[in-house]
């Protein structure tokens, strides 16, 4: 079985994330870039399957700026067999449509049974790439899975929607996205880190994929304005001396909140 895991490089949510007020793009200097945690969970799912099933091949795929290679290598150190890094100046500020088109082209170049993605990324909060990929690749889509079972020709899992919980399944090849209810990632060990250096990591540009960033037929989403909001200031802080509940009740009543 051939599994492709999609990981996205994002500004570390533990850091101070900033947008450039001129370009509206993420300010890469402001905070450290990391692989989105949900992508690492997606990889963990694939690795767990590989642990129990010989002959599972895992490729991590990421569309990210040039400098991201070191982060992508972490996926190899965790246990993936190979990696593909798509990087091109023309992809700077790519919208979801162009991102999906490019990722789909990279996926089409290799055979696959299953594409695993995160449900939403922490920077864009779009949660749309998996759906776009399924449409472009014309394969079944099962998103937001909080449990997953992978078998030879099919994948199944549970999917929580507004009105309840669905049990869903799809024949392979398919695209699935997972939620953070799935287990967190394993740490790369020393052996993994050493082995990662010898594993194949392919760099691809848009030209390699036959894609032009400024296709006139595709509408693109553009940012019109960006404004920073002043950070929130702290208010009063009291130390409980046995009457904090009373004081808080007064505060809420005064502010018509109770």
């Amino acid at each position: 079985m051939k599994i492709i895991v999609l990981v996205k490089e994002v500004p570390d949510t533990y850091g101070d994330r900033k947008l450039n007020l001129e370009t509206g793009l993420a300010d890469r200097e402001a905070s450290e870039a990391v692989i989105d945690e949900i992508g690492e969970r997606a990889l963990e799912l694939a690795l767990t399957h590989a642990d129990a099933n010989d002959g599972t091949e895992i490729t991590v795929l990421s569309l990210a700026p040039e400098g991201a290679t070191a982060r992508i290598r972490k996926g190899l150190a965790m246990g993936a067999g190979s990696a593909i890094h798509v990087s091109d100046e023309a992809l700077r500020g790519a919208d979801l449509g162009l991102t999906a088109e490019t990722l789909a082209a990279a996926i089409r170049r290799v055979e696959f049974d299953l594409v695993i993605t995160g449900n939403v990324s922490t920077d864009g909060s779009g949660g749309m790439i998996p759906a776009m990929l399924a449409e472009l690749l014309d394969v079944p889509l099962a998103t937001g899975l909080s449990s997953v079972a992978i078998s030879d020709g099919a994948v199944s899992g549970t999917r929580r929607v507004e009105s309840g919980v669905q049990k869903v399944s799809a024949n392979l090849p398919a695209v699935i996205s997972i939620t953070e209810a799935l287990p967190g990632p394993r740490f790369p060990n020393f052996k993994g880190i050493m082995a990662a250096k010898k594993k194949p990591l392919e760099m691809l540009t848009l030209a390699d994929l036959g894609i032009t960033a400024d296709n006139p037929d595709a509408a693109r989403s553009i940012m019109l304005t960006v404004a920073e909001k002043p950070p929130r200031a702290a208010g009063v802080k009291i130390i409980d001396e046995g009457d904090a509940g009373e004081k808080l009740a007064d505060f809420l009543v005064e502010n018509r909140l109770a």
Partner: peptide
Amino acid sequence: RDLAGRYAARSRAAVS
């Protein structure tokens, strides 16, 4: 999200 993503990819529309 699934609907918006799939439709946008199909029709080459932009999503916000």
